[in-house]
Design a binder for these strands. Structure first.
Length: 645
DNA sequence: CTGGGGAGGGGGCCC
DNA sequence: CGGGCCCCCTCCCCA
């Protein structure tokens, strides 16, 4: 298909070489300057290339680095084909079901205003005898029932959507965009996304960066309706991996890419402050050891995120051979490579149900455990043979002190877990009897004395003490202690705002924001300042308002306590699991409390806690506490609320 | 110009 | 795992 173009050049290989380089750069993310969001899939590309190929995309990339495409016009799988076409001049074969996919590509290419691809699709359809039929009313691109309703999550950041110039009417019907369904099916079941889309797993496929970041996760209508005979040979008929609730699709492959990106970043360094250094897409020298392809596609994802070796992307024969090799699970013949450690979903979270054996000498092989932590911590195991850093307790070796430290930390975390489990059996054991906090929150963190109502929350909290946050953002590298926080963060990268205001159409990333926002329309101001009576629609603004009162120099400020008392208020609120602003709220209810000896007794744990945090003696802390009426009020309220009558 | 309020948005983290 | 809430930063508007 590209022969005509190539023949016109004095150096016929020029365009080919150029495209090959560009596509290679794309697969590495090198110099990619735009992200295209299609439904819940994410693609990276170069603005110049898109602008040179698509009039529509050209109009978008001028203003935005993040493009949200109308998923009713182009699905992730179709866009993958189109992106591949843009970078290779080839439209991957779509058999079986090829005509329908071709129709979808034609529709999308028309929508995106890519005349060359439109012509190519028409040509192919004519060759297969389908195009006339198509013109007779065959709708080539149909989206699944429920797709529209299920995915109102992406706010288009463009306006004036160009209409397709040569497009049969789009009508909602049964999905032909099967791979889109695969994405959702995988995502909704917590398994990694299948990255291939409509492509056979050739190496020139567009970077499969599928993310399900929708809040209202689609139900996977396409997958449910997908006739199995449309699946490509070698394609899994179900989501590639069994569903793992502890590993949503965002994590597996992308974390692997992240791991690669962190290969040479300073160990232990916090990437949040320098996102560029942590950018997993940044250009780095090609890796000398590409991983072995994996049938489930996650390896492809990793390969893209990391360093895809130069390959004969445009050579169909080679690609077919490559496909055969991949299907057979063989290594590429030219450069047999060691297998990259599997990025199984449970690898990503060493504290899950399988974690008991990771630090134990009876668990899986040291290599397995190491792989787990290598992935977890973002290291590569190239130097497994040089495990000079040995963990004394378990005897495992690690190639770097950082990995050893992380491993030791895992030991500690495991011990914490068992300790918490032991305390679960006898929550008040060895604590001098149940105090106030113990009654309410028997599960105490051994690192900071915070306490919780249930062990799962304690486990969750304990992650905040880990040196290595286990959930990195694959776009900016920022790490999080909770997976949900990370995925929420990812949504902010992608501009996904699932929650829309019915009144004004404004969209929000979180339900809570929408709830707050709706008070603008309703006029409701439920938060009232106890000092001046001012009312606020948002609690945070009341809080900032109260700070203004507290800082008032005229003496009428109600919260004129020294800073240390506020610090203690916060610490105590943490200790009791109460909210800090409750202290300010309760300032007026304090006097009676000091006369209650039982309540005073309850202050001693607080005094101890405060003393530990402020470096005071316990007696001194108790004395300071006695001068901080809001702390007493807090305790009093708590006692009133929870003590038996 | 400045202070205060309104509001958008991100991260932490408990439930 | 998502919801909900809290805290913070920030920007904008306005008196």
């Amino acid at each position: 298909e590209t022969s005509a173009m190539l023949d016109a050049m004095e150096v016929p290989s020029h365009s080919r070489q150029l495209l090959l380089q560009l596509n290679t750069q794309r697969t590495k993310g090198f110099l990619c300057d735009v992200i295209i969001v299609v439904q819940n899939a994410l693609f990276r590309a170069h603005k110049n290339i898109l602008a040179a190929s698509s009039a529509y995309l050209k109009s978008l990339v001028v203003h935005d680095n993040l493009l949200n495409l109308d998923h009713e016009m182009v699905s992730p799988g179709i866009f993958r084909l189109i992106l591949d076409f843009i970078y290779t001049g080839r439209l991957a074969d779509c058999e079986p079901g090829g005509e329908q996919s071709l129709g979808a590509v034609l529709a999308a290419a028309s929508y995106l205003q890519i005349p060359g691809l439109v012509a190519l699709c028409k040509k192919k359809l004519k060759r297969s005898g389908k195009y006339c039929h198509l013109r007779g009313g065959y709708a080539p691109y149909k989206l699944g029932r429920g797709l529209r309703a299920a995915t109102p999550v992406i706010q288009a950041c463009y306006s004036g959507t160009p209409r397709p110039v040569d497009l049969p009417p789009v009508e909602p019907a049964a999905p032909l965009n099967t791979q889109c369904g695969e994405l959702y099916a995988s995502a909704s079941q917590g398994a990694p996304l299948h990255p291939h889309g409509l492509c056979p797993p050739e190496r020139h496929c567009s970077p499969p960066c599928g993310l399900d970041l929708s809040k209202k996760s689609p139900t996977g209508p396409s997958a449910q309706l997908l006739p199995t005979d449309r699946l490509l040979p070698g394609e899994p008929r179900e989501p590639s991996l069994p569903p793992r609730h502890d590993s949503p699709p965002v994590s597996a492959g992308l974390l692997a890419g992240h791991a690669a990106a962190y290969k040479d970043s300073p160990p232990g360094g916090e990437p949040g402050g320098h996102p560029h250094a942590a950018d997993p897409f940044r250009g780095t020298p090609p890796c000398a050891e590409p991983p072995l392809p994996r049938a489930d596609g996650r390896e492809l994802m990793y390969r893209w995120m990391k360093h895809e070796p130069l390959g004969p992307y445009l050579d169909e024969a080679e690609a077919e051979k490559e496909l055969e090799r991949e299907e057979k699970g063989e290594s590429p013949p030219a450069a047999p490579q060691p297998r990259y450690p599997s990025v199984e979903s449970n690898d990503l979270e060493p504290d899950n149900s399988t974690s008991e054996d990771t630090g134990s000498s009876e668990g899986p092989s040291p290599g397995d455990a190491l792989d787990r932590y290598c992935n977890h911590l973002g290291y590569e195991p190239e130097s497994l043979g040089d495990n000079l850093y040995v963990c004394i307790p378990c005897g495992k070796g690690f190639p770097s002190s950082e990995q050893l430290n992380a491993h030791v930390e895992a030991h500690n975390e495991e011990e914490l877990y068992h300790k918490a489990a032991a305390e679960q059996a006898v929550p008040f054991l060895d604590k001098g009897g149940p105090g106030l906090g113990d009654i309410l929150r028997p599960y105490r963190c051994s690192s900071c004395d915070k306490s919780y109502k249930d062990p799962a929350t304690l486990r969750q909290h304990e992650k905040t003490h880990w040196l290595t946050r286990p959930y990195p953002c694959t776009i900016c590298g920022k790490k999080f202690t909770q997976r949900g926080t990370m995925t929420r963060h990812m949504r902010s990268h992608l501009g996904l705002k699932p929650f829309a205001c019915d009144a004004c159409g404004m969209r929000f990333t979180r339900q809570y924001r929408l709830t707050e926002h709706m008070r603008i329309h309703s006029g409701e101001k439920p938060y009232e300042c106890q000092v001046c009576g001012g009312k606020f629609a948002q609690q945070r603004n009341l809080i900032s308002h109260m700070k203004m009162h507290a800082a008032g120099p005229d003496g009428k400020a109600k919260l004129d306590f020294p800073d240390s008392v506020y610090a203690m208020a916060r610490l105590t609120a943490d200790q009791l699991g109460l909210k800090q602003e409750k202290a300010a709220e309760l300032l007026s209810h304090t006097s009676h409390f000091l006369s209650d000896p039982k309540a005073m007794e309850s202050l001693y744990p607080l005094a101890k806690f405060t003393a530990e945090h402020l470096g005071l003696s316990q007696d001194k802390a108790a004395e300071v506490l006695a001068q901080a009426p809001h702390l007493h009020a807090e305790a009093a309220r708590t006692i009133e609320r929870y003590s038996p009558p």
